[in-house]
Design a binder for these strands. Structure first.
Lengths: 191, 191
DNA sequence: ACACTAATGGCACCGAGCGCCAAAAAGATA
DNA sequence: TATCTTTTTGGCGCTCGGTGCCATTAGTGT
């Protein structure tokens, strides 16, 4: 019932592993899809069936984590102030088990420090922001397209990126602490 | 002294005009650089000497406006609270004479609603954010790379984009008013 | 007329990405 | 065992953005 037809030749995970290795060795821009294909042992054409674009490889299965984010926000206590709920949600979303830290740092370094990827990532961020917008809109009885939900989504992303940049700059810092610091810095600044 | 050698065949302004017309007619992605070259009456190769990339055409001479932005911020009264100075600076930077509104709206619509350009624009935004970061760092006696200046830069951009999106959605609104509204919305939200 | 200079634009090339389609490799069926 | 069905693979050829190279062009200055 399940597996008919020709078996798959590779997997998202394998491609990701190989690609990350090559990116680390030569830099993102110097690695071609053909290079990756050879190294994986698969046709170039096939790579494009696993990842829409070369830029999407570093993002992996990001879209599937967004459902988790939605759940996190939905389960926040109702009596929490909205900004606190969103902030804690963002913090939770960016928690990773200790053994995943190293690879997560590598992935984020690639995404945040490669200009090509910085640009492409906006499209991914948009989906993440939409999750926040929808949550804020629902709690305030507004539409997701309204100014305030939009603003909150954009600002939440601004804080997250600021924290991530700090985290990448100094390996000894804690991402959650930086998120808190960015938030409290902003509040003081606006006072 | 001044003009030796073969005279130029076109100008940034002319290319921009032609390109915008074609973008409006067929959509950004459906217009190739070859199309623009033909319409301008110039070689394709020459286009790339005037604009680094197709994505840069809608941004025009943006980098040259950044000096103006720097000046605007530098000339803000010292006794103004920093967040107020930055906010007013952003508002001033986005003031356009009445007769330029229509074309500015068109440009921003292109930039903010075309996915390809949304992505590319991050790189332009980075230069804009850097102006704010430097100003904030200078006033607070910090480094531009420090968390707070970074955060302020990112948040200022977040507010500006939110306002622009609202402005594009409703042609009757005033951009300056939307910037104010986004800012006050954020302050209330964080309270 | 001749040298000099700077922009032009043609050519060939690379890499991402896509449509198309024949071939491969399995399970199902007889 | 042989054939049918299903699904993935991967090769081919194309478009388009972008770049390096270089001869050509169209001016200015002497």
């Amino acid at each position: 019932m399940s597996s008919r037809g020709r078996p798959v030749a590779t997997s998202h995970a394998e491609i990701e592993r190989v690609a990350f290795r090559l990116f680390a060795e030569r830099g993102f821009d110097a690695v071609t899809m053909a290079d990756i294909a050879v190294e994986v042992g698969v046709g170039r054409r096939t790579l494009f069936r696993y990842f829409e674009s070369k830029n999407d490889i570093p993002w992996g299965q990001f879209d599937r984590t967004l459902d988790g984010f939605r759940t996190i926000l939905a389960e926040m206590p109702e009596d929490l102030p909205l900004h606190e709920a969103v902030h804690r949600g963002v913090r939770r979303f960016n928690e990773f088990p200790a053994d995943a830290q190293a690879s997560h740092r590598m992935r984020m370094r690639l995404i945040l420090e490669t200009p090509t990827l910085q640009a492409h990532s906006v499209l991914r961020y948009a989906e993440w922001r939409a999750v926040i917008e929808e949550h804020v809109a629902a709690r305030l009885d507004l539409e997701p397209g309204d100014l305030l939900p939009r603003t909150v989504g954009n600002v939440a992303l601004a804080l997250a990126i600021s924290a991530y940049e700090g985290w990448l700059a100094d390996p000894d810092t804690d991402l959650a602490a930086l998120l808190d610091e960015a938030m409290s810095g902003l509040r003081d600044y606006l006072r």
